[in-house]
Design a protein around this nucleic acid. Structure first.
Length: 603
RNA sequence: GCGCGUGUAGCUCAGUUGGAUAGAGCGUUGGCCUCCGGAGCCAAAGGUCGCAGGUUCGAAUCCUGCCACGCGCACCA
């Protein structure tokens, strides 16, 4: 890929050559210091010379002036000017366009370097027997985007899910299912059985909460019912953990309902996992580890429970790993799972995408693993993110303030069909309308979830996310669709990109040199930043940077579209503009793909 | 109380790891369609970057102390 680092590196190499050899400053340093000037009239790239002042023992403005003089006749620059301590460079458009546009338009934008470090990204982690809702979409979108970014940067990456198919929540759900429902009620619907189970779970928790409240208010009957239910739930939980043959078939059947529903959701979302871990495969291994390290003296007993004292976390040093009743916790399983990941997959880096409330938890997990003599603990990292709320407040299954996934999908898809695609009905095939509605709804939800940085809370606002104006997924998809339309319309009158423009030679040079409008230069320079943005986003595991970049690119491209009509153009200018459109469409599509967002052919 | 995070335009958020006059979207106001998709573009208005100190050529960014809000703090996941 032609990255800005490469373009900047061309420039930086030229700059380095103009510096005294004993400066101790290399092209790499310089490339990192180059930045766009605040005002585009000043140039395309700028080198602040402050940091050269010390090694060169000269004033920054003198350095800038000297560099300007020495670079005077480099053909890659259209203008070089020292502005106080800044060296401002204007690139030759012909050079930049050939360097940037041509590879994109030729589809050569992604020959990535292969890397050694094998990475696993664990994300999604829904609980079976519970409902999948909008809140889960942030984790899913984020984890998937991180996987895509890492792969784009050449890291072999294992996308891993970790299903919560073991635990008290299942005991609660099964209590309701077995003890409260009548025989007729116990028949699940034909479809969306996972969601149905989630409702059972929600009913159970609501009833338990109601009893508890009544009991605390002095209701003896409620207290009795609550005690009975809790005893029964504990019994079911024990049987689950012991794999009691009485409960296992029911557990397996209901669990499958949830998993089938999850699979359907992931397919709609375009998310594919390479491996799925289950809590049920690590719970006993976790307890065995607890026993082993209790014997070794690393873990200690406290009030009947077992845990480890991590003084490194002073505000809550005791990390519990086994409850008084002998059962394990989430933490217990995480110890086993972490080890399993490294042993089974030979990974070198292990990423956990889990909300920020678990930051202390993971600090403890990684500290504990290290003390257990598991050096790979240092290769584990938690990627925290803030929660999703609804305009009506925090999400809660108990109060019913949730938007379930199916509602989300259906409402959004219908909105897109009714508001954007209705006019094409009868004109386009029904399947295409349904397909595009799916793509746009998905783009809206994913972009909304990814456009904010991870440490910002998100308020889910479906209407706003679905708008085609402003910083939304559908806006970007629309820009792509409109641009593809331009290329189609041009092709209809025989105006196509000449293949020779993609090869070095006079045709390419003429087309690139014809791009003299400021809007054209602007797009070329924006496009040049793609690689750098991708690299940073992958390095920092923060996909929102890609969103911001794509939106900026799209804005600039719209200005180009307004100012530089393609179809009426002729000759080298036509070829140059076709090159711009083709390259930007490629870049936008590829950028959206990094976010897991599809780009419709037309919409 | 302790820990983590957040505080930037009326609202929602960026801000390239310390650089030039702090930017965008929405909203508001005013312009631009014989023209490849106007679902677009242009312009205006809107800021003590929570507050106070400090570090240096230079701070929204780094350090300290406050203030406000969110989240987490032992048998839930």
């Amino acid at each position: 890929m032609v990255r800005l680092p490469e373009l900047a590196h061309d420039v930086a190499t030229a700059l380095a050559g103009a510096l005294p050899p004993d400066a101790g400053v290399g092209a790499d340093d310089l490339a990192g210091w180059l930045q766009p000037p605040p005002n585009p009239e000043l140039g395309d790239l700028s080198l602040p010379c402050f940091r050269l002042a010390r090694p060169l023992r000269r004033a920054p403005d003198r350095i800038a002036a000297d560099l300007a003089e020495r670079l005077g006749d480099d053909p890659r620059f259209a203008a070089i000017e020292a502005q106080g301590p800044y060296l401002n460079l204007r690139l030759s458009v012909a050079y930049a366009a050939a360097r940037i546009l041509v590879p994109w338009a030729a589809g050569l934008s992604a020959p990535r370097q292969d890397r050694e470090t094998k990475v696993m990204v664990e994300y999604s982690q829904p609980n079976t027997h519970k409902a999948f809702h909008v809140g889960h979409m942030r984790n899913l979108s984020l984890g998937d985007a991180i996987v895509r970014l890492l792969r784009a940067e050449g890291y072999p990456t294992v996308a891993a899910n970790y299903l919560g198919d073991m635990g008290v929540h299942i005991a609660k759900c099964l209590w309701w299912y077995l003890d409260v429902l009548s025989d007729e009620e116990r028949t699940p619907p034909a479809h969306h059985r996972g969601e149905w189970l989630g409702q059972l779970y929600a009913n159970a928790t609501r009833k338990l909460a109601a009893w508890k409240e009544a009991a605390e208010a002095g209701d003896a009957d409620a207290a009795e019912r609550l005690a009975a239910a809790e005893a029964r739930i504990t019994e079911i939980h024990r049987k689950l953990e012991a794999r009691d043959p009485e409960i296992v078939p029911i557990w397996e059947e209901t669990r499958r309902w949830s998993i089938e529903e999850f699979d359907e959701i992931y397919e709609w979302c375009g998310v594919r996992f390479d491996h799925v871990f289950y809590e049920s495969e690590v719970d006993r291994m976790g307890l065995a580890l607890v026993e082993e390290y209790l014997q070794k003296g690393l873990f200690v007993e406290s009030e009947g429970a077992v845990g480890i004292v991590n003084e490194e976390v002073p505000h809550m040093p005791f990390f519990m790993l086994r409850k008084r009743d002998g059962t394990g916790l989430y933490a217990t399983k995480d110890l086993a799972l972490a080890i399993l990941k490294f042993e089974k997959f030979g990974i070198d880096r292990s990423i956990y995408v889990v909300d920020s409330r678990q930051s202390d938890h993971f600090r403890h997990v990684f500290l504990t693993l290290e003390k257990m003599g598991f050096p790979q603990a240092r290769k584990c990292e938690h990627v925290p993110y803030e929660m999703v709320e609804l305009p009506s407040g925090p999400m809660s299954t108990r109060t019913g303030n949730v938007v379930l996934f199916r509602t989300l999908r259906e409402t959004m898809t219908r909105y897109v069909e009714d508001n954007y695609l209705a006019k094409y009905r009868g004109d386009w095939p029904d399947e295409e309308i349904a397909h595009v509605a799916h793509q746009v709804a998905l783009g809206a939800i994913k972009y909304g979830m990814l456009a904010r940085d991870v440490n910002q809370k998100i308020v889910f606002d479906m209407e706003a996310w679905l708008q085609l104006e402003g910083n939304t997924g559908p806006y970007l998809q629309y820009v792509v669709a409109r641009s593809r339309s331009i290329l189609r319309k041009c092709a209809e009158v025989g105006k196509r990109l000449d293949p020779s423009v993609l090869e070095p030679g006079p045709a390419r040079d003429a087309a690139c040199a014809a791009l003299t409008a400021p809007e054209e230069r602007d797009v070329v320079l924006a496009l040049a930043q793609f690689g750098q943005v991708q690299a940073r986003a992958a390095e920092q595991l923060r996909p929102h940077q890609v969103c911001a970049y794509l939106f900026d690119l799209a804005k600039r491209f719209n200005r180009f579209n307004r100012a530089c009509p393609v179809k009426p153009s002729e000759g080298p200018l036509l070829q140059g503009r076709l090159l711009v459109v083709t390259a930007v469409v490629e870049a936008l599509v590829r950028g959206l793909d990094l976010l897991g967002i599809p780009a419709p052919e037309r919409m």
